[in-house]
Design a binder for these strands. Structure first.
Length: 467
RNA sequence: GCGUGCGUAGCCAAGAGGUUUAAGGCGACGGUCUGCAAAACCGUUAACCGUCGGUUCGAGUCCGACCGCGCGCUCCA
């Protein structure tokens, strides 16, 4: 039974979608003001992707939406500084994000809508909120009237009495005119003539931060949908405000399950530019790390636990992922006798059971990966002692594909073709070995090593890999 | 300051009252296999589960205090 920890109830709950067999999923996506960092990818490309993939694994037909926020104060500032339009500025980072997302082995969501392409939908919600008394206009801007939404705070359980007044200096210095300090902007009036703005029924301006997610999620998934996910920092105010906007406008429940991914730390500290431990995916790639290893590391800890990202850990993930690749390659190449082995059949069944029990338990990827490793070890042992049979080989390969349809941590084998010269050297070395001319064979192996090719002599022939 | 979460072997970590004499991965050391390697496997290594106190027949697991770290308190994945 698939269970999720729902922030709304504060409890582990069985997942029951609104419509049998269908799962409607919204994951908060990136603000494309800069290259995304590994923390963003932990949430969107690791957690969000595994959530999507496991729902599919469990037989749901998934509609997954991930927004691209392409209008926001930083974007406005930086695009102006460069003399670019918002679209010119954000297209570079949007493309980079999606490239990195793909590189990390994440499946593209069904819809990746951009905020700037949904202004009319946002205006429509603001009008409904205004007409129902949930919003008011002030100096051309629109604000949400928190006092008009009795459930405000139900997601974050925020205690306004205790901390909001004393905790934030900004409330007092807010330049906008609001009825109540807690009210938040739905629509910001254009301040200066050169400031980007949309000319709409409610005036010339730009959307507030939260309204885009209400507009785009409801447009693509319906007024009530199943799962809304994102980083834990979004619980308040972003998701709390989304609920207020959406439920205020429709009078219906918004998302039913709220899932929040914990942040990662780097070497035990918060990741920040000032500490010099702020890494984008591209930074790690430039350092030579394999995207699959990065994915593995991001997945190796359950999403509701803080993950301590370290380079030692990443190096370990490189080794682990390489051993998974070798394992699958070895199994694919193995020549086996017909029949099956009862011990392996049981091992495979056990691995499947552990994998599903782990994943069902709020996506415990640590347990799921342990199941994969257990099967890897038992299968390798069987291969070593030649007791693996043809049915086992076929069944375990199929099982690995099932696991991998969720985890996607087995790196694909690289292009099989070697250039002719290298292939000739490999062949020549094999001949030398048959002649027992090991000096020549080792000479060739060293030569290939210099070209970054490592050889492994196996029972089933020679295998090579790029270092 | 208020709220919230976390602190498990050299590193990353699962586990949340009794088959735990604490999963899994990485590392280190020894061995098997190999012409030698590589890969793989086997074995060893290594945790009084942050500290102190409490509840309980029994506590990494519950409660309290303290120390350290993360997150939120309307910029943030």
């Amino acid at each position: 039974m698939l269970k999720f920890f729902n922030t709304l109830s504060g409890q582990l709950e069985e997942f029951r979608p609104m419509v049998e067999g269908e799962a409607k999923l919204y994951v908060c996506g990136p603000t494309v003001w800069d290259f995304a960092h590994i923390g963003n990818f932990r949430t969107m490309a690791a957690f969000g992707d595994v959530l999507r993939r496991y729902l599919k694994y469990r037989g749901y037909s998934v509609t997954h939406v991930m927004n691209i926020t392409d209008v926001e104060d930083r974007i406005i500032k930086f695009s102006a500084e460069r003399g670019q339009t918002i679209d010119e500025y954000t297209s570079k980072y949007t493309e980079a994000f999606l490239e990195d997302f793909d590189s990390l082995g994440a499946e593209r969501p069904e819809v990746t809508p951009r905020a700037t392409r949904h202004i009319p939908e946002m205006v429509d919600i603001i009008k409904r909120l205004r007409d129902s008394g949930h919003a008011y206009e002030s100096e051309g801007s629109y604000y949400y009237r928190i006092g008009a939404f009795k459930d405000y705070g139900k997601l974050s359980k925020i205690n306004f009495a205790g901390n909001i007044v004393g905790g934030s200096e900004r409330v007092a210095t807010d330049r906008y005119e609001k009825e109540d300090a807690r009210d938040f902007a739905l629509w910001k009036a254009q301040d200066a003539p050169d400031e980007p703005a949309w000319d709409t029924e409610i005036g010339k301006g730009r959307p507030g931060w939260h309204i885009e997610c209400s507009a785009m999620s409801m447009k693509y998934l319906g007024e009530t949908f199943d799962i809304h996910a994102g980083g834990i920092d979004l619980v308040f105010p972003h998701h709390e405000n989304e609920i207020a906007q959406s439920e205020g406008a429709t009078g219906r429940p918004f998302a039913r399950y709220w899932l929040h991914a914990e942040h990662l730390k780097v070497e035990g500290e918060s990741m920040s530019k000032s500490l010099g431990n702020y890494y984008t995916f591209r930074d790690l790639q430039e350092k030579g790390f394999n995207p699959t290893a990065i994915r593995y590391l991001l997945l190796s800890v359950p999403y509701r636990k803080q993950l301590n990202f370290t380079f030692e850990g990443l190096q370990g993930a490189e080794r682990t992922v390489e051993s998974l690749r070798t394992f699958r390659a070895r199994l694919r190449e193995a020549r086996t006798e017909p029949g099956s082995n009862a011990g392996l059949k049981a091992a495979a069944a056990r691995a499947l059971e552990e994998f599903e029990a782990g994943m069902d338990d709020d996506l415990n990827t640590s347990v799921a990966l342990a199941a994969v490793h257990g099967l890897r070890r038992e299968t390798n042992t069987a291969l070593d002692s030649c007791v693996l049979r043809e049915d086992d080989r076929r069944d375990i390969l199929a099982l690995l594909e099932r696991f991998n349809s969720v985890l996607n941590v087995f790196p694909e084998d690289e292009a099989v073709l070697l250039d002719e010269y290298i292939q000739r050297l490999i062949d020549e070395r094999q001949e030398a070995r048959h002649r027992r001319d090991f000096a020549r064979a080792d000479e060739i192996r060293d030569q290939l090593a210099e070209r970054g090719i490592t050889l492994e002599d196996t029972r089933d022939g020679v295998r090579w890999k790029r270092k």
